[in-house]
Design a protein around this nucleic acid. Structure first.
Lengths: 125, 125
DNA sequence: TGTGAATTCATACTAAGTGGTAATTTATTG
DNA sequence: CAATAAATTACCACTTAGTATGAATTCACA
C-alpha cells in the first residue's frame, strides 16, 4: 500500500459524482504534487481488480469510477450526463434470468435509469 | 436523407454486436469509398437524436450503438467486454422509483447484466 | 538498514471523439 | 428541368482518454 494508492482511494471515496480518471487526477495532483497521470489510471484499475472500487457503465466515451461496490443503481442525466446513485432495496430483488438462451453465465447486474437531473430540469431547454 | 445516412443506418441495423463508431466506419468505408470518419460520428449522433438508434451504456471507454430502440437489456462479458441482448418481458415491468429523493425525473431504464459470455466460458482462464 | 520486488514517474504513443470551414449534395421552388 | 438556399459531408487539425515501456524510486520484510 503506497501513499499514491491511499490518496487516490480517498479522493474517490469522498465524492459521489462517479468521476473519470482524469477528474481524479486533477484532484489528486493537488494533494500529491508530482503524481503521474499514468499512476492514477493504473491504480484505479488495481482498485477495481481487488474489488474496492468499480467501473460504472455509462453511455459516454470515458470510464467512470465508484468507491461504492455494494449493489445499487444509477441515474444518468440525458442532458449533462451527470450520474447519481439510487439505493432502492426493491430493485435488488430481480431474479437473474437463468435460461436466457444466450449462454451467458450471469453474475450480477445494475440498472441505469435515464432522466433529467435537478440542475437540468430548472435550466430552460 | 443522404446516401451516407442510409448506409450507416443499414450497417448498424444488420449487426447485433453493438459496434463502436470506428467499427462502423470500417464497415461503411468498404461500401462507400471516401466516406469520412467524422461523418460516421456525426451521423450516429443524429440517428440517436432522432430516436432510431441509441447509445449503449457500457464500462469501456467508447460509445457503442444499437439500432434496436425497444425496451430491452444487455449482457456484458466481464472478460472480453462483448455485449449481447436480452429480451425478457419480466424485466420490463420494473416500477420507476417515483420518490427517489434525488430530484431526477426518470424517463426510462435499462439493465446491464454482467457475466461471462459463451466464448470466454470455454476458454481457459 | 539492506535487498528484492513492486510501484511509480516520465515520455511517447495509440485510440476515441470534436471543431471549423470549404465544397458537395439535397430538397425545393418556379 | 434548372436555379438556388439549406443542409450535409469531407478534409484537416486538434483535444481528450487511455496504454506501453523502461528507468528510477519506494515499499515491505528480514
Amino acid at each position: 500500500m503506497t501513499v499514491q494508492r491511499r490518496v487516490i482511494m480517498e479522493a474517490l471515496a469522498e465524492r459521489k459524482d462517479h468521476p473519470t480518471a482524469d477528474q481524479l487526477f486533477d484532484t489528486v495532483r493537488q494533494r500529491l504534487t508530482g503524481i503521474s497521470r499514468t499512476t492514477v489510471y493504473r491504480v484505479l484499475e488495481t482498485l477495481v481488480g481487488i474489488g474496492v472500487a468499480q467501473k460504472i457503465s455509462n453511455p459516454e466515451a470515458k470510464a467512470r469510477f465508484d468507491a461504492d461496490t455494494s449493489l445499487h443503481h444509477h441515474l444518468v442525466c440525458e442532458r449533462c450526463q451527470a450520474i447519481g446513485d439510487i439505493h432502492e432495496p426493491a430493485l435488488n430483488q430481480i431474479r437473474l434470468p437463468e435460461d436466457n438462451g444466450t449462454g451467458f453465465a450471469i453474475t450480477g447486474y445494475s440498472i441505469n435509469f435515464s432522466g433529467v437531473c435537478p440542475g437540468c430540469r430548472t435550466t430552460k431547454h
